[in-house]
């Protein structure tokens, strides 16, 4: 997961690496994702999210659709 200056720089990187364009987030979404994912990581009771919990976390920050699906 990389940070880019703009959409054009994402496209340039994809061209350079011969990769199809993937999924993009705003930095605000990225920060919310980091809080969802890591906010409780130092808790002694932490455990990995289930597929359902992870997909629900994605949905809460507006990441929906096939690209963000974990099951299957």
């Amino acid at each position: 997961m990389l940070l880019f200056r703009s959409e054009q720089h994402v496209d340039r990187w994809c061209l350079l690496w011969g990769r199809p364009r993937g999924g993009t987030l705003t930095l605000h979404q990225g920060w919310r994702l980091a809080q969802e994912w890591y906010g409780d990581r130092l808790s002694p009771d932490w455990r990995p999210k289930t597929v359902e919990e992870a997909e629900a976390a994605f949905a809460r920050i507006g990441l929906a659709g096939e690209f963000w699906r974990l099951a299957g």
Partner: peptide
């Protein structure tokens, strides 16, 4: 990041690989 807020919002994050 300050006081629980990300202060800078320029730029976008790209995931090259689908989640699964």
């Amino acid at each position: 990041v300050k006081d629980g807020q990300l202060l800078d919002h320029r730029g976008i994050i790209h995931f090259a690989v689908p989640a699964r």
